[in-house]
Amino acid sequence: MIELKHVGKVYQARDERHRALDDVSLTIEDGDIFGIIGASGAGKSTLVRHINLLERPTEGRIIIDDKDVTDYQGKELRELRKNIGMIFQNFSLFQQRTVLQNVTFPLEIRGHAKAENIERAHKLLQLVGLDEMWKRYPSELSGGQQQRVAIARALANNPRYMLCDEATSALDSRTTIQVLDLLKRVNRELGVTMVVITHSLDVAQQICNRIAVIDGGVIVEEGLTQDVFANPQSDVTRELLARGKAEPQSTLDMEKEA
């Protein structure tokens, strides 16, 4: 279980103060696929980076599995991160490593035996359906394939949690569906709890069981996905829903893959 309690984040640069998060409280239960949706600049990415402490809150506490991790440093922090996989909008694969070496990276930095790492990486690549590509380099793969490799890499340490930061935003709609299906499978079959950051209501609707809507660093609405969609409580959500309907899946996206 991930709990954020009154989390706030203020960036201070010389005389400028920017409040990125304001009194954010959320509870993400084990087994959830929890969506955090909002427009760009709403604070989604900042929020998700607080869960694995890539960002530190200036106020509030972060509690994971009943332990207050807010002030974790050094080895403690690295152990915590082992339990939280992460995937990114632009995949963030290491360009000079093969697909296999990308997946073994999280294992390698823990100093596990090499043969074991390779065996585990092959298993994960089978899971994401890319084992035959293990010798290739990321630049030789399509976007969807790269994200699947990134998912395998994020799962290397058998994490309980996985953070997905706009994981499908750089993908066309057909590939998006494949990647979302894979995330659903990882959630169901491996029991990995997911936090999904997205600006796309489609994505949220397809895989999230709960969603929170964020705007200007504030959570404006939270609840079961179907409830929020059927009966939005805030203006921000209604606006997002209206915009989502006005912009059906662009045909441009489809052409990109063809």
């Binding site: 915590l80 992460m86 990276f105 930095i109």
Partner: peptide, 9 residues
């Protein structure tokens, strides 16, 4: 950032 997220020092 990705390397940090996997717990690299």
């Amino acid at each position: 950032e990705a390397a940090h997220s996997f717990g690299a020092n």
